[in-house]
Design a protein around this nucleic acid. Structure first.
Lengths: 226, 226
DNA sequence: TTTCATAAATGAGTATGCTCATCTTTTTAA
DNA sequence: TTAAAAAGATGAGCATACTCATTTATGAAA
């Protein structure tokens, strides 16, 4: 039908869109979403160790090897939920103009609170991977760079938030240690949250609030130079 | 064809070796020590993931399966170093009569300091397992009971130390949460310690001291009832 | 269209942690 | 001393996370 006797080469016929979305990328996107859906369901039901990559790939309708084209390891797959959350968290925070003007403790409360809400559906399997993602690797542990990047991204974000407070003289300069401390504190809070039987996890929220108030007040008064 | 290989007992004349009740236990003891020696060396050299159970058993001169008669999992094997330390820690503390009379912050400092010293040779592989041992299991994670017991033993010990301080009205009653908080704080300190490049890890020790002072002072003043 | 390069999917293969039925050694009972 | 029982050691075998050489699908060029 459409004979295109272009003996020469120079025309760009496909001029619909600059970077054609393409069936390929579309499929990839769909496949990735399917994997994540299936994985989330299986992890919730059987836990991380109780779910095999074979199960995931079968239910997602792909070959076993394909799974590893999308996620380097099973752990990375589980961590991807948090990867995604970190991205959306940062975006969300940047949009909350009111929050930007609030005191530091309030900012951190909002940030951590939002994260806890996000983690709720993962509550049952999070413990198995989440902590590892925010903890130091030992020199010899060949853990994926992915989780390292995730960790660094989150800590950088926290550091930014703290830096703003530092610039406005709300707190004295803390350096990297500040973000580090918040990260550790976050781990503690999640730990408490996982165990918290109180309605709506109110108790964890109360502790969160109290600790942040106390922490910022203390740092303001005494600084970090010991 | 599967024949009954040999009836019950091949005449295995009692080699007059004194059947001293203990040969078996003696061997077991030696084997266990050998496994631990070899494992420690290999873990230090190649890390936890870089060391296979096959390597360990070969170098320890036992069959691969035998290893699992001694340690339920490779992780348990790595954790055993801390298991041992917890026992000796408790014993040591009970012997330090002077310490018993010191303020709470000093007790905790001594305890944690001693643990850090013990951990030093494990520094390179500790990160890979240690944290998991003190963290909450998710409901579905079928982790060995061993590490649970280890965790509980340590937390019970800490709770005892706190209870003494409570009884003497040094601090208000904290309940289980107190030990829990100390456990988390310990994780934070070990994290910092692993990263600390300062000579002799002085910086970590300084932070440890400062945080304990501040923490106990705060608890004394404000209690834990929010 | 046909051709071809490249991206993606595939599944047999590999390494390894761990299990278990069986064999061996030690202890106990007579 | 001997037989039976109990405890321990063994290694073939299993399950599973992950690899990789090969096949298939896609999109661009001609």
């Amino acid at each position: 039908m459409k004979e295109k006797p272009r003996s020469r080469k120079e025309p760009k016929p496909r001029t619909n869109k600059a970077p054609k979305p393409g069936k390929r990328d579309e499929n990839k996107e769909r496949t990735k979403e399917r994997i994540l859906d299936v994985a989330m369901k299986l992890f919730q039901k059987h836990g991380l160790d109780g779910t095999t990559t074979k199960q995931i790939s079968r239910q997602a309708g792909i070959a076993e090897g394909t799974l590893f084209n999308y996620f380097k390891t099973k752990e990375d797959l589980a961590l991807f939920f948090f990867q995604k959350e970190t991205d959306s968290l940062i975006e969300w925070f940047r949009g909350e103009k009111d929050l930007q003007r609030a005191p530091l403790a309030e900012k951190l409360f909002a940030i951590i609170h939002r994260q806890l809400e996000y983690l709720e559906p993962c509550e049952d399997f999070i413990g198995a991977v989440f902590f590892r993602s925010l903890q130091p690797r030992s020199k010899l542990s060949p853990l994926s760079l992915e989780s390292q990047e995730f960790r660094i991204k989150y800590l950088k974000f926290i550091k930014e938030v703290l830096s703003e407070a530092e610039e406005e003289k709300e707190i004295p300069p803390l350096g990297d240690l500040g973000a580090y401390a918040v990260g550790l504190f976050y781990i503690g809070i999640v730990t408490h949250w996982l165990h918290d039987p109180s309605n709506g996890k109110q108790k964890t929220l109360a502790i969160l609030d109290r600790c942040l108030q106390m922490g910022t007040r203390f740092v303001k008064k005494e600084g970090w130079e010991w």
